[in-house]
Design a protein around this nucleic acid. Structure first.
Length: 202
DNA sequence: AAGGCGATTGCCT
DNA sequence: GGCAATCGCCTTT
């Protein structure tokens, strides 16, 4: 299992958001390997009023303007972190928010990080571990300290996974934004149980 | 210097 | 389904 190369990330966020579906988010913490299949993403771009990069470079958003293949983590609502994959060439402010993953390995550790007991074996507890951007950031213990991390050369990376056919990818509107709400820039694997919010239509 | 609010979650009704 | 939690960021005085 090895990191996807820089060239995967330097494409536009709309492309990378779709291509990330089915790949693995991986984090090594000592001997523990946390990993999960990315099942839901959202694309954000520089010309996009809903994007943190829309108003230009700030201390927080600087990493979004760097070359693709880095991690952008922000803190929101006074208590949650959200993890993004920076995309595009150097100088362009765009990224893909990872909204949900399906846990693969390190599930016990994720449960500890989430302060949840998963030993009951209840399906709902396994799902609630990582079915949202704040939840998966907590499960993978990702914070602002990790913002700027290089995903092509380090302990946090994206690895190749199952190829998802186009027919299984649903495009929907993004969650939790107050502007540019009409853009269908959220993508998820149809039918996957970890998707945070299913689209209205069928 | 101050105020509004957020790429969310979990609890309460 | 509604809403409080909680604080850093950005905009406005």
């Amino acid at each position: 299992m090895s990191p996807l190369p820089r060239s995967f990330f330097t494409r536009s966020s709309l492309i990378v958001a779709k291509e990330l579906l089915g790949t693995l988010l991986v984090r090594r913490i000592g001997r523990t390997l946390l990993s999960g299949i990315i099942v839901e993403t959202e694309a954000y771009r520089q010309d996009d009023p809903a994007s943190h990069s829309y108003r230009g470079i700030t201390d927080r958003t600087r990493v979004m303007f760097g070359i693709g293949g880095h991690l952008y983590v922000y803190f929101t609502y006074g208590m949650h972190h959200c993890a993004n994959v920076v995309t595009g060439p150097d100088g362009r402010g765009e990224a893909v928010l990872i909204r949900a993953v399906e846990p693969v390995s390190g599930i016990e550790r994720m449960a500890v990080n989430r302060a949840k007991d998963v030993k009951s074996g209840r399906r709902s507890e396994l799902i609630s571990l990582t079915n949202g951007p704040g939840k998966l950031a907590q499960a993978f213990a990702l914070t602002r300290e990790h913002s700027g991390a290089d995903l092509t050369d380090g302990s946090i990376f994206i690895a190749e996974g199952e190829r998802i056919p186009r027919k299984r990818i649903v495009a929907a509107t993004r969650i939790g934004i107050s502007v540019a709400q009409e853009q269908p820039w959220r993508f998820y694997i149809d039918g996957n149980e970890w998707v945070s919010k299913k689209s209205q239509h069928h």
